[in-house]
Design a protein around this nucleic acid. Structure first.
Length: 111
DNA sequence: CGCATGACGTGAG
DNA sequence: GCTCACGCCATGC
């Protein structure tokens, strides 16, 4: 499995996602901005898609609306919603209820 | 090489 | 507050 792009960005995304505490979630844009790729949030999602490793809690990463946009690609056996609910996150209609409360911003937390 | 698509986000109307 | 349009970078055809 060879990665045809800068491993820095790739690895950084994984690092951030791994650093996300249980019961908390972050957004693609937040990660992208933290990595200096503000506006290129798509690259974050793209990276996660390539990441496909159970070691990466990608279920803690959602879009800015707190919607499980990538639940379709998140086929690890359990649904994205299931995993999030296990961590105590309430979800309804593929959307995080208290998204504002459990939101974890790397810029603010890791700063 | 150009066009369309995608786990997104921001700006304008 | 919501909808439409554009930008972003990489991949696929």
């Amino acid at each position: 499995m060879e990665i045809g792009l800068s491993n820095s960005f790739f690895c950084d995304v994984f690092e951030i996602v791994k650093l996300v505490p249980p019961g908390r979630v972050t957004s693609y844009g937040a990660i992208a901005r933290y990595l200096g790729n503000a506006g290129s949030a798509r690259m974050v999602g793209w990276a996660l898609n390539k990441c496909v490793n159970e070691q990466i809690p990608a279920h803690r990463v959602v879009n800015r609306n707190g919607i499980l946009s990538g639940k379709n690609h998140f086929n690890y056996g359990l649904s994205m919603q299931e995993l999030l609910e296990i961590e105590g996150i309430k979800i309804e209609n593929d959307r995080i209820i208290n998204f504002d409360e459990i939101f974890w911003d790397p810029m603010k937390e890791l700063l």
